[in-house]
Amino acid sequence: MIRLMTIAAVVAATFGVGMARAEDWPTRPVTWVVPFAAGGVTDTTARKIAVVLADKLGQSVIVENKPGAGGIVGTEGVAVAKPDGYTVLYASGGPMAILPNLKKGKLSYDPVKDFAHVQGITSSSQLIVASPNAPFNTLPELIAYAKANPGKVNFGSPGIGTAQHFAGELLAAAADIEMTHIPYKAGTSQMVDLMSGVIDLSFDYTSVIKPYSDAGKMKVIGATGPERLPSFPDAMTVVEAGLPDAVNVGWTSVALPAGTPQEIVDKLSGALQASMADPSVVEYFAINAQTPITDKGPKDMTQFVVEENEKFARIVTAAGLAE
């Protein structure tokens, strides 16, 4: 009896798969997994795009938050999801490039082999910010101060293995200075300690920093991107300071489980590109100082993920951070 039911189930499953043709996708709502908690920048960006994307696909797009372990839990879930295009991942540098190298051999997914990378979404460089009373105002002054006072500079981050933490490690390695990393939990508690001068330095995105710097609660002394930020034209980049190895840019993208039919990948990529051109999304990107990376389609995005993984593998080895 059980065998009979199994056979029936297999037949039904096969038939079912035969019914859903890739070119018809999507015929039902699409779930967009955001591996971070509701309310953060990643979540709000996804929700902003999802509204437009639903319009372009002609199906509703449901944003589902699956937070945990810096994005690993949600990413793992999508890696083993059915590759039928109905479970979409909002991927980002943390779970796709930094953590796989930091926790080498401990994650259940491979960021390159287990995913079909669909479309680049945003890239954001970070600002280097200092406590208002810090004895340095520019990037070269910071480096000079750190060299003159070895072991005195403390920098905070939202935790081990975050892009902000790596920004600090990269800068210390590139400038050959000594800085103590003070890890915090979540995105904001280090900001209080930075304002009150408990820590000297931090690295974070424009959307996080701008309210504080506008109010004079902290000072921006540099930027980690290759180019200056339009909203902070005075912040010298690490490249200008002669430290091209300290460039650190946070990125997000959309991925599907590996084995998803190519038609679906291409159709989703096209719909996302169209969504990102929508005025409401463009305005949101501008306000949060996120640079859209619309030009990174399925092929370029895969290549980019491979390169990012190679880069972080190097840093982890060089800084001796592997667990």
């Binding site: 309310g39 902003k48 701008k210 309210p211 504080y212 506008d214 109010a215 609660k217 949101y284």
Partner: peptide, 20 residues
């Protein structure tokens, strides 16, 4: 955690929570 969600609600309306 609830306040963090309210930050999200402000951000979606393009208001950056902060001293300003």
């Amino acid at each position: 955690a609830v306040m963090a969600l309210i930050v999200g609600a402000m951000m979606i309306h393009n208001i950056q929570p902060g001293p300003q």
